[in-house]
């Protein structure tokens, strides 16, 4: 055997030994939060793989697994999501055994009726991008505002007009747009595993088959919105045109308008021209999907 081969084997053995030692530490009780942080930060790859494998097992056992990159990325994404929650909230569970705490968090998530949103149409490159944008909108105001741009091609000024915002609420829209362009979009692409070449391919596809791609985008947006709209506050249901009109005229519930209209194509279409106060005749909006911010 060559010296390089020997080195590789010994390196692998060393890695195995390190892994076993780290697992041993994770199985022991940690008594204080500093110890929890230290032990966990040294074993992040192990914990990510464990959470990912649990997610894969769940997908297999529920008949949702497919042996391809899209499914592998889906499992990795949710593994990372669980790991992040474990890192942040796990400190409140000290004293504990970190490895078993992670297992219990993942098992608890998987015991829910719908732990995450799995839909085959959201595993295509376009579906993954839309899933990333809409799921991000459920937790990030920047992404929420950016949906108006990605779905309809609106700029900050148009968003302010369409939503009938005034004063500081309007200023915040500019801030949201800026932050999304600076870092938010790229972070979402990284989190969803969408590479630069994937984004480029999607852009060219939209240019080549404009109408067809936009129809497909609208269909997928409706699928994603129907799920992620559940994350908005309880008291934000769909309203009739008359109710929206009243809200726009009275000028209350700007938060309601911002949240719900970004996540509901039908309500957005119904309330589209209310922000313009009848100043101009505006055509009903149509989905014009934009890949880049």
């Amino acid at each position: 055997m060559t010296p390089i081969g020997m080195e590789q084997i010994s390196g692998r053995e060393q890695t195995m030994q390190d892994c076993t030692a780290a697992l041993g530490r994770l199985e022991q009780v940690v008594s204080i939060t500093e110890e929890f942080d230290r032990v966990v930060s040294q074993a992040l790859p192990i914990l990510l793989d464990r959470a990912t494998n649990s997610t894969k097992r769940f997908l297999r056992e529920t008949g949702q697994w497919g042996d391809d990159v899209a499914h592998e990325k889906f499992a990795l994404r949710w593994g990372a999501e669980y790991l992040e929650q474990f890192l942040v909230a796990g400190r409140s569970e000290v004293p504990c055994r970190p490895l078993f705490l992670l297992d219990s968090i993942v098992a608890k998530q998987h015991s829910r009726p719908e732990p995450f949103y799995y839909h085959p149409d959201l595993l295509t490159p376009l579906g993954r991008l839309i899933d990333g944008l809409v799921s991000r909108a459920a937790i990030s105001r920047d992404a929420l505002i950016a949906l108006y741009h990605h779905c309809f091609g609106l700029g900050p000024g148009q968003v302010i007009t369409v939503l009938g915002l005034t004063g500081p609420a309007g200023q915040r829209i500019y801030k949201n747009f800026k932050r999304w362009r600076d870092s938010g979009w790229q972070r979402t692409m990284d989190d969803m595993g969408i590479t630069e070449s994937d984004a480029q391919d999607l852009c060219s596809q939209l240019q080549r088959h404009h109408q067809q791609s936009n129809n497909e985008a609208e269909r997928i947006i409706r699928i994603a919105q129907a799920h992620y709209r559940k994350s908005e506050p309880d008291h934000y249901p769909c309203l009739s045109r008359r109710q929206w009109e009243e809200m726009f005229l009275e000028g209350y519930s700007s938060d309601y308008r911002i949240w719900h209209l970004a996540l509901c194509l039908d309500c957005f279409t119904a309330a589209w021209d209310l922000g313009f106060r009848g100043a101009t005749a505006i055509e009903k909006p149509r989905v014009e999907f934009h890949v880049r911010p």
Partner: peptide, 13 residues
């Protein structure tokens, strides 16, 4: 707890 750009800042079970 999350920032406006969606980053998880803290929390508890």
């Amino acid at each position: 707890l999350r920032s406006e750009d969606g980053v998880l800042l803290g929390g508890l079970f």
